[in-house]
Design a protein around this nucleic acid. Structure first.
Lengths: 155, 155
DNA sequence: TTTTCTGCAAACGATTTGCATACAC
DNA sequence: GTGTATGCAAATCGTTTGCAGAAAA
């Protein structure tokens, strides 16, 4: 959000890229900046990013967007999420509990996605890391069922 | 697995179909039976189902498989899951804790999917249902990070 | 200079859809 | 009978890939 926040993110990017043997390019920086700038707009797809870039008169191609999103996810800078709407969606991987600790309720009837803020997974994460040696960067929790609207219609 | 189990599933199907104004067809029954029969083979895709059908000399078309999987998910008989491998995967929606209570660890580096059996979500589910009026039928939990193999290689 | 990256356009593959026929109710 | 479901093939659409030129290290 703030300039400091953005600078921090881009510095982080430089480090992680070179650590992985990748190059820092203006395209990758620009795409990451969009996530910082639009941090209140969750769940952006490749197409969303591409449209924002076009409005900014950027020359970045759609294939580059896909490749950057892939790479940034692999580096743990972004998190890829699937809502079953036919396209992958991404958001910044943050440790901020306000953002990190939320779940998704997906209605099987109307396909609505509801966000639910509450998390009790910290101890579960610690337990998993302990037992499996897996280093957890983020999690995604989806609950499937029927929303109150659809339940009401049925009754 | 057992014949009783299968019969129960198909009865359940009949009821839920007619309750929703849908018709009971041999295709829908046959597809559901495959899930019961192959219950130990988790995460089947539409293509998987179609291939099994072809081996059984069934005439069911791929489009019908897609339509049936969609419908069975909407009815809460199947659960649709996304592992980011490019196709939707389905499994029986069961309340059996052995099946219900498992999570997925997805490695950001090698894309490996590890199953982890352990669940602590019952109270969280109850809490959500209580606060949001959402009726939960199933959940999907994915943890993203690096697997122990990839961590070892890096070191 | 050497390797990686980009942009474009073509290729791909999973899923959806239109339509005529067949079937469940 | 009437409306829904099926099967086929064509269409769709998100995503990937090959390649030649451009740019980072």
């Amino acid at each position: 959000m703030s300039d400091n926040h953005q600078l921090f993110r881009v510095e982080d990017l430089r480090g992680k890229l070179s650590a992985g043997g990748y190059k820092t390019t203006p395209q990758r920086e620009e795409i990451l900046k969009i996530f910082v700038e639009y941090s209140e707009w969750h769940h952006m797809s490749a197409e969303d990013i591409y449209n924002i870039l076009r409005k900014k008169d950027s020359e970045i191609g759609l294939a580059t967007v896909y490749r950057a999103l892939d790479l940034l996810s692999e580096l743990g800078i972004l998190v890829r999420m699937d809502f079953g709407d036919g396209c992958a969606r991404y958001e910044l991987n943050t440790t901020d509990p306000k953002v990190h600790h939320h779940h998704h309720l997906i209605c099987l009837k109307c396909k609505k996605v509801i966000e639910f803020e509450e998390d009790l997974l910290d101890e579960l994460e610690a337990d998993i890391a302990d037992k499996s040696g897996f280093q957890i960067l983020n999690h995604e929790v989806k609950f499937f069922g029927y929303c109150s609207d659809c339940l009401a219609k049925e009754a």
